[in-house]
Design a protein around this nucleic acid. Structure first.
Length: 119
DNA sequence: CGGCTGACGACCT
DNA sequence: GAGGTCGCCAGCC
């Protein structure tokens, strides 16, 4: 199906291969830990493009092996992922409170140094 | 060209 | 900690 902004929303790309590089970084996040859009962007040398990281994950095909649910915003809150993201995190022992905030976020946040840019 | 938008973030009250 | 503001950047109209 051809790209249709009406159905798929605006297309977000920060250079060729941006989506793939984002996915490659997110694949490095182990179960039981979470990272942030900003940290993923930083790992790619694009700290100012944190928002685009979100769009790259939104563009993931269904049933991909990329653990997109382990990416949250800098305050430890789930975004649009909602119920699905919450369930997948719970399956890994990560709890969220009634306001969509990850419990003990500071403790399970993966150090940004642990993420390396894909070659 | 100009305004608007957004799976974000740094600051300031 | 909870809001509000502003900066960010590419894509769309």
């Amino acid at each position: 199906m051809p790209y249709d902004p009406q159905r798929h929303g605006p297309l977000r790309v920060v250079g060729p291969g941006f989506h793939e590089r984002v996915w490659q970084v997110v694949r490095q996040v182990p179960a039981g830990f979470v990272t942030t859009y900003g940290d993923v962007g930083a790992a790619l040398g694009l700290r100012a493009a944190a928002r685009h990281v979100g769009f790259a994950l939104a563009a993931l095909p269904p049933r991909s092996d990329v653990p997109w649910h382990r990416v949250v915003n800098g305050r430890g809150e789930l975004s649009t992922g909602g119920a699905i993201q919450r369930r997948r995190l719970a399956r890994e022992g990560i709890r969220t409170n009634e306001r969509g905030r990850i419990v003990d976020f500071r403790d399970i946040r993966l150090p940004v140094d642990a993420l390396r840019a894909p070659k």
